[in-house]
Every structure is written in structure tokens, then in C-alpha cells.
Write a protein that binds this DNA or RNA. Structure first.
Length: 228
DNA sequence: ACCCAGGGTCATA
DNA sequence: TATGACCATGGG
């Protein structure tokens, strides 16, 4: 038997802090309309393409796919690898992303499409997605939350940056540890995870840059929270 | 000419 | 387990 790793879970109660952050962000940026996509499949594609890539570049690639009538699992699997990569070029990492996209499409076909997955428990679905080569924890959670409407809290670079600057977390914790921490602090349905993540990204894009330890995000109430 | 972006995998030590 | 290299484009 593998020994269970730590699991601090709810050592500190972040609930009130998260509620305040949510309210603050919502009053500034919300409501966001997320995830920007016309179909659920487009969300899967966007989740792969946006890996370490600005959304603006992803939109170029999505336009290319639509123009080529290739925003479709069968088409993505039928076109040759070279021309798929060419369509993805503006999104960067186009060779790896072409492979990852195909892996995800093969997975989707094995599952019999998105509609065949409603009965599967979230954790099983998550494990299944993570088994796809090129789908990591954040990509899986993008898909689970926005395409499958599962209650998973997405941890991205903005989440780490914003909450570590507030003093709520260290920032370099393991992905799963942070996900448990946030989900544990927001157990009920009173907080919309999809909206929360969208707000975090909006704030991250607006102010919380990595380098110049941003004045903006420390001017406002967000940084007056007590240290956890 | 930098730095950055809505990550993930792989090779080393 | 923990770093580092690599993937690559477009915008500031």
C-alpha cells in the first residue's frame, strides 16, 4: 500500500476570504461570459490550444480551424498531421498541440462523444482525461468545468499569483493540494466556480503581471486581507 | 531586443 | 522529488 501523502485539507479556513475575493472581483469585472466558445467541442480544443499561450493567439488558430471546416473530431483525425499543425500555427507549439488534439479526439471517440459521459462520476472522468497524453490537470479541469459542468476548481498561474500575493497560499504548492484546498473551502453551491475562475483570469490579465510586482493589485482591497 | 502568455512532458540527478 | 529543457507564436 502506498502511504497517504499529508493532506492538510482545511488547516486554515479560507472560506470567508474567498467569498470576499469573489465579491470584490465580481463587482469589478463580472459577470464574465465564460468559456468563450460556440460548442462544447470548441471548449476542448481551446483548452489544449491555450496551454501556456495567450488567448488571442488561440483565437487565430480557432478561426483557421473553422475556416477549414476542421473544428470537428472526425475532421481533426482525418486531415494529415502536417496540415493540422499548419492550421494551429498561430497558437504556438503547433506540432505538439496537433498531436495532443488528436489524442483528445481519439479519447472522445472512444467515449462515444460528450453525451455519453453524463453518468460518469467526476473523479473517474478526471482520471480518464488525465490519461490522455497532453492533458494535464489544468486542461482536464477546464474541460470538466466548462464543457462538462462538473464542480472542479481550476488552479492556474493567475490563481497562484493572486492568492499568494494576498498571502493566502505560498504559491508553489502541488496542483492537487491547491485544488483540494479551494474546493474544501467552497463546498456548497453558493459559489460559481466557472465565474470565479473567469474573474481570476480577468484580474490576472488586468493587473497581476509576474515581474513588476504590480501596484494595481496592491492598491485595492484585495491586498488588505489578513494573512491566512 | 526583451518579456510574457488561460501548460505539459521528458531527461537528468 | 525536484529542477531544467523543450515546445513556438504574436503582442506589449
Amino acid at each position: 500500500m502506498r502511504k497517504r501523502r499529508q493532506e492538510p485539507q482545511c488547516r486554515v479556513d479560507l472560506t470567508p476570504l474567498l467569498h470576499r475575493v469573489y465579491g470584490d472581483l465580481a463587482s469589478r469585472y463580472g459577470p464574465r461570459q465564460w468559456w468563450p466558445a460556440e460548442t462544447r467541442f470548441e471548449i476542448l480544443v481551446g483548452a489544449i490550444l491555450t496551454q501556456n499561450t495567450s488567448w488571442n493567439n488561440v483565437e487565430h488558430a480557432l478561426r483557421n480551424l473553422k475556416r477549414a471546416r476542421a473544428l470537428d473530431p472526425e475532421r481533426i483525425l482525418s486531415v494529415d498531421a502536417g496540415s493540422l499543425a499548419a492550421l494551429l500555427r498561430p497558437a504556438g507549439y503547433y506540432n505538439v498541440k496537433a498531436r495532443r488534439l488528436r489524442n483528445l479526439c481519439r479519447w472522445l471517440q472512444r467515449q462515444g462523444g460528450l453525451d455519453g459521459l453524463h453518468a460518469m462520476p467526476t473523479e473517474a472522468l478526471r482520471a480518464s482525461l488525465l490519461a490522455v497524453h497532453g492533458v494535464g490537470p489544468e486542461t482536464a479541469d477546464d474541460i470538466l468545468l466548462y464543457a462538462m459542468r462538473r464542480r472542479v476548481f481550476i488552479v492556474d498561474a493567475y490563481t497562484r499569483r493572486i492568492f499568494s500575493r494576498i498571502g493566502a497560499i505560498a504559491g508553489d504548492e502541488d496542483y492537487e493540494a491547491l485544488r483540494r484546498l479551494f474546493e474544501c473551502a467552497l463546498p456548497d453551491n453558493s459559489t460559481d466556480y466557472g465565474e470565479f475562475h473567469a474573474l481570476i483570469v480577468a484580474h490576472g490579465k488586468a493587473t497581476c503581471r509576474p515581474k513588476p510586482l504590480c501596484d494595481q493589485c496592491c492598491l485595492n482591497r484585495l491586498c488588505s486581507f489578513p494573512r491566512a
